[in-house]
Design a protein around this nucleic acid. Structure first.
Lengths: 195, 195
DNA sequence: ACCTTTACGGAATAAATGTTCCAGAAAGGA
DNA sequence: TCCTTTCTGGAACATTTATTCCGTAAAGGT
């Protein structure tokens, strides 16, 4: 055997997620990545391949960690409207905090790269579908429990919730007003419950 | 007097809008701009300044033409829910067409640049505010006419509509399913009308 | 017809970007 | 302890990028 790596792959990948999430694929340079990730150029290329390959791995890591958590939250929820509200509040908090990357890494990547990069588009597409399915399952259970209106089918409502989530992700990427989040969350929940 | 320009500034700006809208600020090179705009490098820099300045002018042009049209449409509308529906159908059509830039140039720019570029952020911010105000005016008239539910105030509903519009803009930037647009439009309009 | 002003085309430039390469050092097994 | 493996730091590379410069040509007013 030989020398072992001086870094944890997942830790570096988490840093890569934050860097790409914050500045985008084209917005960050190889030099900034080397600085931000804290390992040498050669280790970076040996371990993760080129910039595009690193980006894709970071995107997949986000899919597992962040999106995975949201899906788990929905799948374990008892009170569905409350669970959805919590997800939106979480998004609101991250938008209003001074530090940390803004918006949603998947939405950002879809907008920056999806039209011209089918490899990235595939990852982003799977992420939307997984979320749509998770919302759909949760909303269906919510309807069976009488927590959510049955005036629209679960699939359509899932897409509706997700569209609002994406809209707020885009909004939260710029100067954001808490009142806008409050308004959206309030109306969205009243739409889910009404009937 | 001296020689006159061989191009129309606004025509070039329209082309610049399409190029930046399609590939983003960092995604397009100066070389591609020269090719796509059809004028020489020196004319380009003499007339519009550097790349960043050209981008800002393109963004402002979009604000006048595209956003301006939407606001005018809302301000002249008699049937408000119908007018809103038309705007969303227009967005749907552009997303489903094979050609042409996808999504909304303002949303794209907010996501790519707003967090790190205050000059661009200002333009994007003004665009959101102008649209929010226009939706607010229209929805207020709709409520007075009995076309729109009064269970939420016009400002909150305006923000809600705009968030859905932005969510669909992000969605429409990748592979888009007509059924998703149909679902969102249907639920959004039923939310506006219900009481 | 001339002269001033300004657009034009393209070469030229300096900086930044993504990537590779190499020599040395460190780790662990034999 | 030695040897093999492979990680590491940094120099080096080719390419691309954004921008400037300059000689030439064209337009319009006098």
């Amino acid at each position: 055997m030989a020398r072992t790596k001086e870094f944890q792959i997942d830790e570096v990948l988490d840093k890569a997620v934050n860097l790409f999430w914050s500045k985008g694929y084209n917005g960050i340079s190889a030099e900034e990545l080397v600085q931000g990730l804290g390992l040498s150029r050669s280790s970076l290329y040996d371990t993760f391949g080129d910039k595009h390959s690193l980006f894709k791995q970071a995107l997949k890591r986000y899919r597992e960690k962040i999106t995975g958590d949201v899906i788990a939250h929905l799948d374990h929820a008892e009170n569905i409207p409350e669970a959805i509200k919590e997800i939106f509040i979480w998004s609101q908090n991250s938008a209003l905090q001074a530090t940390g990357p803004k918006g949603c890494f998947m939405v950002n990547s879809r907008i920056e790269l999806a039209p011209h990069d089918s490899g990235i588009s595939d990852v982003v597409q799977e992420n939307w579908q997984a979320l749509e399915d998770a919302y759909q399952r949760a909303i269906k259970r919510g309807q069976e429990k009488g927590q959510i209106s049955k005036s629209h089918n679960p699939r359509a409502l899932a897409r509706f919730v997700l569209t609002n989530s994406w809209g707020l992700s885009a909004y939260g990427r710029g100067a954001a007003d808490k009142k806008v989040f409050d308004d959206i969350i309030k109306i969205l929940l009243s739409t889910l419950k009404s009937d």
